[in-house]
Amino acid sequence: MERRDFLKALSACAAAAIAPEDAWSALNQPGLRYLRPPGALPEDDFLSACIHCGQCGEVCPNRCISYFGMENGLASVDTPYIIPRDKGCILCMKCGDVCPSGAIQKVERTAEAIVEGVSMGRARVDEQLCLSFQGKTCGVCYRACPLPDVAITVGMLEQPHVTDKCVGCGLCERSCIQLPQAIRVIPNYG
């Protein structure tokens, strides 16, 4: 019996290894919520423009940019991504400067240009989890936001309200003291 189970598992692994791209992403999609670097083109254009040179990661002072293996499908191999809960983007905009291929567009490092040109996603508050909405004044996400009062405002008890100017850098999600996080960035893949 044990051997049979082993063989079953083995064949499942083999099937997964040779399965086409969609199966790969389907297999791994739950939980895979990633952002592209700031200024990135919409997902399809980004994939066709990115030449996988790795310079965006090499210039990132926060080292928030990592690179996909096979977990997001064949087309995404070696493309950059950010997992905001691990490390948010500090919007230094260096990756857009260094990107040669136009996959990450150059955006000037001013609040107006960033609000205009960056749309990595939009933060969303889960009011069931958020401490401030549960009567315990927190406000950590507001203080972590690089665009306070523009992208996020606070009301009573520091209850956060995300505006439509949020660019999705993920620093709020990174800083949220709740576990699981009460504020998370919903990626915008364009």
Binding site: L47, S48, I51, G54
Partner: peptide, 25 residues
Amino acid sequence: TGSVMVAAVYPPAILGREIYYAIAL
């Protein structure tokens, strides 16, 4: 695929990336 797949089979591109992965990531 709409993705620059030649980069995956081109040794200098692979080496440049992989050395970076090994050291920084």
